[in-house]
Simulated scan of single mutants.
Amino acid sequence: MTRRLERAKLLVATHNRGKLDEIRALLDVFGMDIVSNADFNLPEPVESGTTFVENARIKAHAGAKATGLPTLADDSGLSIEALDGAPGVYTADWSEGPNGRDFVMAMARVHDELRATGAATPWRAKFCCTLVLAWPDGHDEVFEGEVHGQIVAPRGEHGHGYDPIFLPDGMTETFGEMDQIEKNFISHRANAFEKLVKGCFA
């Protein structure tokens, strides 16, 4: 049986504003007081794991230990079949440029590497999300979600990260073309959050 979250204040272990806003929207109905690493000037811990769950655990437990608050961490990424699952846990690393994160560059790299493989389209891919909710006593709960689709030419200016090149199955708009409310119904993060809510909030 999963542990219920009873406290009204929750730390979201991220400095990513787009991700924070998405999580706030998903949890808005519960009236949670949501704070982030930036509110406590917390450094980003080294994500030394080789899987999404390992990295999410590192971030969640670091936040809970530093603040004494229940902490939610998300590790997510894009996994592309023709690239043997890459960029995977290195999804954010692919965006690191000389002036910080540059997802235009990262999306171009995805297309360059796919063309280099000679793989035929459609280029199948999935977004993966792992949520870890950690308590200061060391306990945690893990929830995972996925959404499947394909890689396409960049379309749209909404969302964040690789959203403009990901077309979910059964949809005509990329994540970058959808408004946040629409995306939050079908995204990998929404899928994981549905499990989180059933396990720890319901």
Results as ranks from 00 to 15, higher is better:
K9S: 14
K9N: 07
K9G: 06
K9E: 15
L10F: 03
L10P: 04
L10H: 05
L10S: 05
L11R: 11
L11D: 15
L11G: 15
V12C: 08
V12T: 04
V12M: 01
V12H: 03
A13N: 01
A13M: 04
A13G: 03
T14C: 05
T14K: 05
H15N: 14
H15I: 10
H15F: 08
H15Q: 12
H15L: 12
N16F: 07
N16I: 01
R17C: 07
G18P: 01
G18E: 03
G18Q: 05
K19P: 09
K19C: 06
K19A: 07
K19F: 04
L20I: 04
L20W: 02
L20Y: 05
E22I: 09
E22R: 13
I23Y: 02
I23H: 02
I23P: 01
R24W: 13
R24Y: 11
R24F: 12
A25G: 10
A25R: 15
A25P: 01
A25Y: 02
A25N: 09
L26D: 09
L27D: 04
L27G: 06
D28F: 06
V29T: 14
V29M: 11
V29Y: 05
F30P: 10
G31W: 04
M32W: 12
M32A: 14
D33R: 08
D33T: 11
D33G: 06
I34A: 12
I34G: 12
I34T: 10
I34P: 08
V35H: 09
V35T: 14
V35R: 10
V35I: 12
S36W: 01
N37E: 12
N37Q: 15
N37Y: 15
A38G: 11
A38V: 15
A38H: 07
D39F: 02
D39G: 07
D39M: 04
D39R: 00
F40K: 03
F40Y: 15
N41H: 13
N41K: 13
L42N: 03
P43N: 00
P43S: 06
E44S: 15
E44M: 11
P45E: 08
P45C: 09
P45N: 08
V46D: 00
E47A: 10
E47F: 09
S48D: 11
S48W: 00
S48P: 00
S48H: 06
G49A: 04
G49N: 08
T50C: 09
T50G: 14
V53E: 15
V53S: 12
V53D: 12
E54V: 10
N55G: 08
N55A: 03
N55Q: 09
N55M: 01
A56K: 07
A56Q: 09
R57H: 01
R57F: 02
R57P: 00
R57W: 02
I58V: 15
I58M: 10
I58A: 11
I58Y: 09
K59T: 07
K59F: 03
K59I: 00
K59Y: 02
A60R: 07
A60P: 10
A60I: 04
A60S: 11
A60M: 05
A60T: 07
H61L: 01
H61D: 06
H61Y: 02
H61F: 00
H61T: 01
A62P: 07
A62G: 12
A62W: 10
A66Q: 05
T67I: 13
T67A: 13
G68E: 06
G68S: 05
L69A: 06
L69N: 05
